[in-house]
Design a protein around this nucleic acid. Structure first.
Lengths: 244, 244
DNA sequence: ATTGACAACATACTCGGTAGTATGTTCCCT
DNA sequence: AGGGAACATACTACCGAGTATGTTGTCAAT
C-alpha cells in the first residue's frame, strides 16, 4: 500500500516493481520517482505489452502494487494517461537529439549524430517508443473519438516537428555534399524507418545493453546514410556515441 | 440479412459494404466472394482500424451487414479469426514475390524484383499487412495466452521463412557483387524496414493508386538497395513492375 | 495538544460492452 | 418430410472505464 511515510515512498515503488516486469527483457528503471512518472513508466510498459485497448487501468495499477484510485488521482482518464505517455516519449526523443543539433557542424555529422542518438533511444526506451507508434497508428487509421482526435492531432504535430529535424538535416546534408535526393519525403521516411525498425525485433540480451545497442546503432546509421547515397568517414563513425 | 438466394449472395456483400469502409481511404475490393474471404477482408479492415483487442466480433459482422452467428459459423473464436487473417496476409506476400524467385537471374535483379513486389504489396494490402504486424508485436511482447502462443509461434515461423527469402537474396547478391555486408541480420532488417515503412504513413490518394504505388516502390527499393551498398542499373530499374 | 482541511490513495459500485454459447429460423437438397 | 448448412437472435458471464465513497497521513491554525 502506498500509504507510507514520504521517506520510504520512492523506495517502495522500486522494490514493488512487478516480477513480471523484471523477467521481461526490458527492465523498468525508475529514473524518476514521483508517483506520476512511475505511473507513466508502468503504463508505457503495459501499453507496449498489450496495446492500449487490452491494457486496463487495473493492469497499470497492479504493476505498481497500487490501485485504480492512484491512477485516477493523477490522470483523468485512460486516454489522458496514454497521451501523457506519448508526450513523454517524444520528450525523450527530443532530449536525445538535442545536444547534436548545432548548425555549426557539417550537416552530415549532424545527421549522423542525431540519427545515432535516435537509434539508441529507440532501443533504450522501447516502451515509450512503442506507445508513440501506437498513437501514430491510431491517428492514421482514424479510430478515435472526436475528443481523442483533437489531442492526437496535437501529438502528431509534435512528432512531425521531430521528423522535421531529420528532414532539415538531410536536406542540408544533400546540399553540402552536392547530393541529389529523388524525393525528400520518402527518403526521410526510409531513413527513419531503418532506424526505427528495432522496435519490431530488438530485445536487450544483456544486463548492460549499451555496447550492443551502440554496435547495432552504428550498423543502422551506416545503412540509413548509405540509403541516402552517402557515407560517414571512418573516424567520424568511431566517434559516434563517445563525445557527449 | 444474408438469407437470400445463392444468385444474389455475392452481390449482396459488395453492395452492403459499410459506408464507413468506403469513406476510408482503403476501399474494400472483394476479390474473393465466398463468405469466409469476405469475413477475412472485413476483419483485416477492423483489426487495422482498431487493433485486435478493440475490434469486436460484432464490428466485423456489422461491416458485412451480418451478425455474429455468421462469424462464429466460420471461425471458432476471435483468435482463430485473427490468425486466419495473418495467414492470408503472409500468403499474399509469398504470392507477390513468387514469380521473381528464380535463381537463374542475377541475385541483384532477383532482390530488386522481390523487394519491389514486396513494397507494392505493403501498400496495396495494407489491412492484411497491418494485421501481420500486430501479430508480430503480439509475439514479441509475449502478451499471449498459452493457446495463442502455439499458433503464434507457428505464424512467426511463416514470417521468418518469408524473411529468409530476402536474406538469401541479399547474401547471394553480396557474393555476386563482391560486397561486404557488415551484419547480414541487421542489413536484412533494415532492408525490410525501409520497404515496410509505408504501413505507417502511406494512404492511397487516388482511385487508381497503382502509378503512385509504383513510383513510391521505386524510391523505396532504390533506397533499400543503396543502404546495402549497391544500386540497380537504370534500365533494370525501369523494367521493375512491367515484366510480369 | 487538538481540530479541521486536504492530498493521496484504496475500495465499492454502476453500467455498458463483449466473447462465446444456446436456441431459433429459413433455405436447400435428398 | 427430414436433415443439415448458414446464418440470426437471445442469453450468460465476465470485464473494465469511470464514479462514488471510505481511509489515513500530513500540515496548519488555534
Amino acid at each position: 500500500m502506498p500509504k507510507s511515510t514520504a521517506a520510504s515512498h520512492d523506495q517502495m515503488y522500486g522494490v514493488m516493481a512487478d516480477s513480471q516486469a523484471l523477467s521481461a527483457a526490458a527492465v523498468i528503471v525508475n529514473r524518476e520517482t514521483d508517483p506520476r512518472s512511475c505511473i507513466l513508466n508502468a503504463a508505457a510498459h503495459c501499453f507496449t505489452n498489450q496495446g492500449f485497448a487490452a491494457t486496463s487501468i487495473d493492469d497499470v495499477a497492479h504493476k505498481l502494487n497500487a490501485t485504480k484510485g492512484m491512477i485516477y488521482h493523477h490522470f483523468r482518464s485512460k486516454n489522458d494517461l496514454f497521451f501523457a505517455v506519448y508526450r513523454r516519449g517524444m520528450e525523450i526523443n527530443f532530449e536525445a537529439i538535442k545536444p547534436f543539433q548545432s548548425k555549426k557542424l557539417p550537416a552530415l555529422i549532424r545527421l549522423a549524430r542525431i540519427g545515432y542518438a535516435h537509434a539508441v533511444t529507440m532501443m533504450a526506451e522501447q516502451d515509450f517508443q512503442r506507445t508513440v507508434s501506437q498513437g501514430v497508428a491510431m491517428h492514421q487509421t482514424g479510430s478515435t473519438t472526436a475528443a481523442q482526435r483533437e489531442t492526437l492531432d496535437e501529438l502528431i504535430e509534435v512528432r512531425d516537428r521531430y521528423e522535421a529535424v531529420f528532414r532539415e538535416a538531410i536536406r542540408d546534408m544533400a546540399r553540402e555534399e552536392k547530393l541529389e535526393i529523388d524525393d525528400l519525403s520518402i527518403s526521410v521516411k526510409c531513413f527513419l524507418a531503418a532506424l526505427n525498425g528495432t522496435v519490431f525485433w530488438y530485445s536487450p540480451r544483456h544486463k548492460n545493453p549499451q555496447p550492443e545497442q551502440h554496435k547495432i546503432a552504428l550498423n543502422l546509421i551506416t545503412y540509413a546514410l548509405r540509403g541516402l547515397g552517402t557515407e560517414l568517414p571512418a573516424e567520424a563513425l568511431e566517434n559516434l556515441g563517445e563525445d557527449e
